[in-house]
Design a protein around this nucleic acid. Structure first.
Lengths: 152, 152
DNA sequence: CGTCAAATGTGATGTTGTAACATGCGGCGA
DNA sequence: TCGCCGCATGTTACAACATCACATTTGACG
């Protein structure tokens, strides 16, 4: 595979990539983590920890506490398998784990779907502006609320 | 006063400006709103609705419910007297009400203080990217988490 | 097999945000 | 003046989001 393609990966391919990335980070790919990732990956809008807890509970036929979900989501975010959408208090699967980007999320206020842009130039400028102001260990949060093309 | 200065306004001058802006928007400047704004304006870090409710309660010697605070904060945000910091679930007074900007907030993860930058070029690029992707009624959320110069 | 660390379960609790309806207050026309 | 109306605020309840502390399970490894 060539250097830097950004095809969205489908269900199982994406899970495979996630698994590889997680193991690569020295973490385990457990059933629970696989289930949570796969549920998260089916969402095209940011999913709250509680949404995920409900679906994973169904899938397993046994209550999974939000608590556990949060733990794993935190891990996913730390290892770049998922992103937190701050303006939605919710999470999205990273469709290309392994690639580091400062994602820009576009969230439709009407239908809730989120798309994401990787514009390293843009996010780089934001980073630069922050560092210019004396900030270090910078982590940009760039999200755009609005109306998507389908909801005009 | 000249066209577009951005001196931070101090306590009473800022409140005066806020009052003017609110009335200009066809809203009332009530005691409650004045109190909430003045409390918000003393913060140099994003203040949660609950923080504000506590302080305003003290100040008035009578419990003010978070509920009421939210209502007024929403009004402030709608009229550009205050901003919501999404990544902190909290609010900041706008130090120059009347000027419309897509603010960029820098929030220190260590001390919590927030500074803000107005870089219309940068935020304009974010807007443009979103509109390019078919989004309308765009409202950028640009925040940067990191460590401020004092906390290095 | 025993031990240890990591993962997950469980229950409690803290924080943030809304909904629904009641009350108060001031303006304005009858 | 009186009653009505619209807006602001009060009050109660609850929903949604997030974390803490501690118990139990699992599985890797000597």
């Amino acid at each position: 595979m060539a250097a830097h393609h950004h095809h969205k990966q489908g269900g199982s391919a994406l899970s495979d990539a996630a698994q590889a990335a997680l193991i690569d980070a020295g973490e385990q790919w457990t059933d629970m983590r696989a289930d949570i990732f796969s549920v998260l990956a089916t969402y095209d809008k940011p999913a709250s920890a509680y949404d995920i807890a409900d679906l994973v509970s169904q899938k397993r036929g046994k209550r999974v506490a939000p608590n556990s979900v949060y733990r794993i989501l935190d891990l996913f975010v730390a290892t770049n398998l998922a992103r937190r959408v701050e303006s939605a208090n919710a999470y999205l699967a990273n469709t290309h784990p392994g690639c580091l980007h400062d994602c820009i999320f576009l969230i439709c206020d009407t239908c809730g779907t989120a798309t994401h842009i990787d514009d390293d130039k843009l996010s780089g400028n934001v980073r630069a502006a922050a560092e210019n102001a004396g900030f270090a260990q910078v982590r940009p949060v760039i999200e755009v609320r609005g109306k998507c093309a389908d909801c005009d």
